[in-house]
């Protein structure tokens, strides 16, 4: 699998996929997409990167342990639910905030951050699994 062509193209593919995964995640509320799909695309990118450049390189590039990202995701998702405490409404009641920046308005909402949490969990967990399997394989070979 480690052909020259694959190794050369892989970083390009990976970068594109990662950007695309974030895009899919963020647009999810109004267009097809969302945290689950985005996370899967991102994890696939990491898997491809791992195959091409080796697990050590990927871990170095990620800087953070993927499981930590997943943990952060669960925390973020749970935390957005807790925020509704401040509006004296039940757990996970959504809160919307419209930030006007120049001509456009950026809608910030707890469901958005919740979705980002989902993204982090799926991305982190599945990347961790893929990397662990790959490193297991590398050690054996």
């Amino acid at each position: 699998m480690n052909t020259i062509i694959f190794r050369t193209i892989a970083p390009l593919i990976v970068a594109t996929m990662l950007v695309f995964s974030v895009y899919v995640c963020l647009r999810g509320h109004n267009e097809p997409g969302g945290g689950f799909i985005g996370g899967l695309i991102g994890a696939a990118a990491i898997g491809v990167f791992g195959m091409a450049s080796g697990v050590a390189t990927v871990r170095q590039a990620l800087r953070v342990d993927p499981m930590a990202i997943a943990g952060f995701g669960v925390f973020l998702a749970g935390f957005t639910g807790v925020l509704s405490l401040f509006t004296a409404s039940p757990f996970m009641t959504s809160i919307w905030l419209y930030l006007p920046i120049g001509e456009t308005t950026i809608p910030l909402s707890t469901p958005l951050f919740f979705d980002i949490g989902v993204y982090c969990v799926v991305f982190g967990t599945i990347s961790a699994i893929a990397l662990a399997l790959e490193s297991d394989r590398e050690e054996e070979l």
């Binding site: 999810g28 509320h29 109004n30 097809p32 689950f36 669960v74 639910g81 469901p111 919740f114």
Partner: peptide, 23 residues
């Protein structure tokens, strides 16, 4: 819920608690 993708709205808003469990 201010969302146009109904499936995603169900996942992250209406059934957010379930999704939290699922992740």
């Amino acid at each position: 819920a201010h969302g146009h993708n109904i499936v995603n709205v169900i996942l992250v808003d209406y059934r957010g608690f379930d999704t939290l469990g699922e992740i």
